[in-house]
Design a binder for these strands. Sequence first.
DNA 1: ATGACATTTGCAAAATGA
Length: 276
Amino acid sequence: MGVKLNCPAIANSAMKIATFNVNGVNGRLPRLLEWLAESRPDIACLQETRTGDASFPVDAIASAGYGAIWHGQPRHHGVAILARGEVPLQVRRGLPGDEGDAQARYLEARAKGITVASIYLPNGNPASTPKYDYKIKWMRRLFDYSRERLKLEEPLVLAGDYNVIPAEADVHNPELWRSDALFLPETRARWRTLTHLGLTDAIRATTDDPGVYTFWDYQAGAWQKNNGIRIDHLLLSPQAADRLVTAGIDKHVRAWERPSDHVPVWIELDLEQSGA
DNA sequence: ATGACATTTGCAAAATGA
């Protein structure tokens, strides 16, 4: 890249990338459109679209100014990637490593000059069942695939609902979550293998504050009592992390009418910057 | 330990979630 004599303002070159578990893209469509209009991300990764490929609301999303690709599944799971003013170019649909895995949890695309993945990592509860084994295997597959992708040494953003509480600072009452699949020592150890690869947890790169949450249960007044957990994450390759300008959580969205139980998490990258 | 609450499909109630 050539030297620019007139250094552009960050606002001109910053790219906003968000992740949002919508908990039903059709049922939540009004909230999604309101949030897109307010937040105006360049790229948005969605999880838990919870509808089949034929019923993805592509027209409504296009009317909001976004192109989209999606990997749907009736009732459960489902991921999508939206880009403002363009249709993302699909790179991968489904996480490698298990040909028998039919659950729609991984989608990767190039858009606006960067590669992003929308990830819906398995919940894994109850932890004493095959559901947890599936979660751990999925995390191993994500580790193997991420290691390969990092060899490209390019900006890469792995965004989504990881269903992982990384540390005690990320949960309101750790004791209530000790035996939960989201917080078990093995779950957190698998998470650390990802960060040890060189992936950066964007929120933790910008704040050490405890009590920074992305999910509040619908039940037992969890939102009103701020009984939250931080489970929606953007993991950044070194080439993306070195261009990180800011990160944030749209917490106010949880107070909207008929909201998702998750809220959007986002970053801004300065891709004009040369990096480290 | 269960259920609390909300989603989906499909039109009742089961399956799933975190």
